[in-house]
Design a protein around this nucleic acid. Structure first.
Length: 417
DNA sequence: TCTGGGGTCCTAGGACCC
DNA sequence: TCTGGGGTCCTAGGACCC
């Protein structure tokens, strides 16, 4: 018997956030629906107005429309009918409203989406345990050693997984099965929605090379633009370049990676467990704020962000040593500052104090549109407590700060730019 | 009317140590 | 005193992904 051939699957839930909403509002099936944007639930009013009937009986005409949307949000997902109009993920809501004003807008229901995410992943794990989490709606699965994983190149197992997820949730997904993660990821897009695509090594030339370079997971808008300037458009164009030429133009690491990617080579394993590196909270304001003129408001937001990161750390059992801030100016430039402490912390006041130090080192004369707080260099709280019990116990800083203020930033803000 | 929020990884310079 | 290096940590920014 010959050894099993490596078969890796990539599974992507179809229009996940939107599909989850359609479970609740089946009357919207087949219509252009867009998820995302608002801070406030756009359907709140609906739920009050039609409190007397089941959600599935709320008339379609009553739903909020994209043309009435105001705010700074972006689209998280669009249903396939909405995509027909050119609306897509990460697009600003205002731009989308121009393309498809009649689309229905619904906010993200994170709790429900997370619940569905856990369910579909546990359904997969029961069938094929070597699974890598790639975010809320995607996973890689190693089919190689799964009984039946080799049949028809993986198609039989992929079908079983699709069917099991549909039975558990009523949601569809698309699956690509290929010799590695890189090709599987591209393959999963071939037959969307509710599709399966099986690729082998020998298909790279015919199925992968004609695709745009941007289809490679790892080539983003910047690299795409640079490749276009060099007159390279397809993955085949990329594969035709020598390794040396790519290294000369894109650097050691990226150049070698690009060459391998273009030839469909990728030996990354499917990783079933990983530890977080950082945790952060950030928020874009409803209107741009000024460090001095809107001091009180900013101070409250800043303290709240620190508190929320601290809660996240404590809830998940982590502590961190590097505290950082991020701000985005009204012209969309981004600045970050960070500070590494001697001791690990998950304490809101300690984080607030360190973040306040960071704030003093950044230009605050321009208006801000976003503020964020990050904690990095994470370690498990129990591991650190076991190593240094005396330090972990002491937390004398909690009362040092009044809860409002952005007062740390006043001196720097009053200096000339 | 521009462009969310949560992440990871890489690069590059300077400090500091051996 | 000069010259040369290697290694690690810290910091800032940026590309990319979901």
């Amino acid at each position: 018997m010959s050894p099993p051939i490596r078969r890796i699957a990539h599974l992507d839930m179809d229009a996940f956030f939107a599909s989850v909403e359609l479970l609740r509002y089946p009357q919207l099936k087949g219509l252009p629906v867009v998820i995302g944007g608002g801070r406030r639930r756009a359907d709140d009013e609906l739920l009050v107005r039609f409190a007397d009937r089941p959600l599935s009986r709320i008339p379609v005409e009553a739903f909020p429309l994209l043309k009435d949307y105001v705010g700074r949000g972006v689209i998280t997902t669009a249903t396939y009918p909405a995509r027909q109009f050119g609306v897509g993920s990460a697009m600003g809501m205002m731009k989308a409203a121009k393309l498809c004003p009649q689309a229905i807008v619904l906010p993200v229901d994170f709790d429900e989406v997370r619940r569905c995410s856990r369910t579909f992943k546990s359904v997969i794990a029961e069938i094929a345990p070597v699974m890598e989490d790639r975010g809320i709606d995607e996973v890689y699965i190693d089919f190689t050693e799964v009984p039946g994983g080799q049949r028809e190149g993986g198609r039989v197992l992929a079908r079983l997984i699709q069917k099991s997820i549909f039975e558990a949730l009523g949601l569809t997904c698309s699956i690509g099965v290929a010799p590695n993660k890189l090709i599987a990821k591209m393959a999963s897009e071939f037959n969307k929605p509710n599709g399966i695509s099986i690729l082998f090594e020998e298909d790279v030339q015919s199925k992968i090379w004609p695709l745009a370079v941007r289809k490679i997971n790892g080539i983003g808008p910047k690299s795409e633009a640079k490749l276009h300037r060099l007159h390279l458009h397809t993955i085949g164009d990329l594969a035709a370049q020598s390794r040396e030429w790519l290294v000369d133009n894109f650097g050691q690491a990226y150049g070698h990676w690009m060459h391998d990617a273009a030839w469909g080579r990728d030996d990354r394993p499917v990783v079933t467990e990983s530890e977080p590196v950082s945790m952060s909270r950030e928020t874009t304001f409803e209107r741009d704020l000024h460090a001095v003129r809107d001091r009180a408001e900013l101070g409250a937001i800043f303290t709240d962000l620190c508190t929320r990161v601290a809660d996240d750390l404590q809830r998940k059992g982590y502590v961190g040593r590097t505290i950082g801030i991020k701000l985005r100016y009204d012209d969309f430039r981004t600045a970050t500052r960070d500070l590494t402490l001697d001791d690990y912390t998950a304490d809101g006041a300690t984080i607030r104090k360190a973040a306040g130090q960071c704030l003093k080192r950044v230009d605050l004369s321009r208006k801000l549109r976003l503020l964020g707080v990050r904690v990095g260099k994470l370690a498990r709280a129990d591991a650190v407590a076991a190593e240094a019990p005396a330090q972990a116990a002491a937390a004398p800083l909690a009362s040092e700060h009044t809860p409002d203020l952005f007062q740390d930033l006043q001196p720097a803000a009053s200096e000339p730019p």
